[in-house]
């Protein structure tokens, strides 16, 4: 859980992590992470941050860019600067205007498989992310994920519209109880 002692993990804007991160505290990605990041608390991809791979956490916030899948046990939020190329799963999903997603969304408990990640493409990125303090090097983002043409059928239960009908979207605070959690 997010530290009572204020402990957290932060991947700086000029840092590149290749591998897996496992945390029982909040993880903030301002730089680049290639691999899997798991947390029992929150994972936040900050504006300018890039994750190539898998994100799994109780709470996930995407203000930067994710190429891969994200699974949130409780809540997933994509801000107006967030971009996702890949599949998302969460019982509660909030997406702000300006956010961009190419992939499947499951709010019914089905989990996206890693293979379903679409190849990165030239999605027009929201203007806000382009300028950012982001170092030029990090933006290469050409993680050519061999665009595995997803073989498995679409999760049948995923409703196209009115996704919120059976799943009551709980109103949760943006930051999960900062002091306590």
């Amino acid at each position: 859980m997010a530290g009572q002692d204020g402990s957290k993990t932060e991947i700086g804007p000029a840092t590149r992590v290749i591998g897996d991160v496992e945390a029982e505290e909040d993880v903030f990605v301002l730089g680049r992470l290639e691999g899997t990041v798991r947390s029992t608390a929150s994972v936040v991809i900050e504006e300018g941050g890039l994750v190539l791979g898998q994100v799994e956490a109780a709470f996930v916030v995407i203000a930067g860019r994710l190429e891969g899948t994200a699974v949130a046990e409780k809540r997933l939020e994509i801000t107006e600067t967030g971009t996702v190329l890949g599949d998302l799963a969460a019982p509660a999903l909030v997406m702000l205007e300006g956010g961009a997603v190419r992939g499947r969304v499951a709010m019914d408990g089905t989990r996206p498989s890693r293979a379903a990640t679409p190849a990165p493409s030239r999605t027009p990125r929201p203007a806000a992310t382009t300028g950012a303090s982001a170092g030029a090097t990090r933006r290469g983002g050409s993680a050519t994920r061999s665009g595995t043409t997803s073989t498995q059928p679409a999760p049948r239960a995923t409703p196209r519209s009115g996704a919120t009908r059976n799943e009551p979207v709980r109103e949760l605070p943006l930051d999960p109880e900062p002091g306590e959690n």
């Binding site: 530290g3 402990s7 957290k8 700086g12 804007p13 000029a14 591998g19 496992e22 945390a23 029982e24």
Partner: peptide
């Protein structure tokens, strides 16, 4: 420049590279 911090309840398996100071 902001630091990269690996918190006390975090395990990283792999490589940490770049130009930020690492704690």
């Amino acid at each position: 420049m902001s630091d990269t911090v690996i918190g006390s309840r975090t395990l990283v398996r792999g490589r940490i590279l770049g130009e930020d100071p690492v704690v």
